[in-house]
């Protein structure tokens, strides 16, 4: 494995008295899609949300251990969480466009992070983001229409455009296709595959088939523990751990 871009070491996460993650050591490579899979409550979403400190929003949540992105400690006291989240974007399960126009949805992050110095630059970056998200051709003539006037699949690609507008290094995706039909899912999956050349992508998915289709590395979690991590082609054809085998073949979970 090449040098990891994201490195989790001895990560333990607690929600009050409940421990959600146990001693997780996980390396995530740059420019690859890493899928986190496992049954509900296995800790995969907790780990995902630890990467951009979304768990800070939960009062009773406590993080212990070390998590580095590009060599920078995410949990160091000096870290500006807002800046961190610009570097580590997130796409959620349900498409959640702001109640604004398509244009404003993408421009929003650029404005709050002051990433465009002129109106022209703003327009260029909105266009670039929508093109990168494979949405430009469908919305170019209706940028002023509300974001939520789009179809579910388009809304999710709008959210991806909004995320990549601020040019993060990492994109976290939490079940990004679970609200989409198979065709919209295929479009988003193809988009994810094309985005990985520029971004490091970590995706949580309940669909093992989706993990198999879109990721290069897969990590299987069970009851808060990392059971197995490896190349997706190996995990789905010849898993080394019996629990992984049982899960991917539908025998537990």
């Amino acid at each position: 494995m090449t040098k990891p871009f994201i490195a989790a070491r001895a990560v333990n996460v607690f929600y009050g008295a409940n421990q959600a993650l146990f001693d997780i050591d996980l390396d995530i490579e740059a420019n690859k899609v890493t899928a986190l899979i496992g049954p509900s409550g296995c800790g995969k979403s907790t780990l995902l949300r630890s990467i951009n400190r979304m768990n800070d929003l939960i009062a009773a949540c406590r993080f212990d251990g070390s998590l580095q992105i590009g060599g920078q400690d995410v949990y160091a006291p000096a870290v500006d969480v807002v800046a961190l989240r610009a570097q580590v974007g997130m796409v959620f399960q349900k498409p959640n466009p702001f109640p604004k126009s398509i244009y404003e949805n993408v421009a929003y992050g650029l404005k709050i992070h002051r990433l465009a110095t002129s109106k022209r630059e703003m327009q260029d970056r909105v266009e670039w983001s929508l093109k990168s998200a494979g949405l430009w051709d469908e919305v170019a003539d209706r940028l002023d229409e509300p974001g939520n006037s789009l179809s579910g699949g388009q809304q999710q690609r709008l959210c991806i455009a909004r995320t990549i507008a601020v040019q993060p290094k990492v994109i976290l995706m939490d079940e990004p296709c679970s609200a989409l039909d198979p065709i919209a899912t295929a479009v988003v999956e193809e988009l994810i595959d094309s985005l990985r050349k520029d971004y490091t992508i970590v995706i949580v998915t309940h669909s093992m088939q989706q993990a198999a289709r879109i990721s290069q590395r897969t990590a299987f979690f069970h009851m808060g523990k990392l059971i197995e991590v490896g190349h997706t082609k190996d995990v789905f054809t010849n898993p080394q751990n019996e629990q992984t085998q049982n899960y991917i073949t539908g025998r537990i979970g």
Partner: peptide, 9 residues
């Protein structure tokens, strides 16, 4: 072929 079937369903 085995990998193709496992990964692409």
């Amino acid at each position: 072929a085995e990998r193709l079937i496992a990964l692409r369903q």
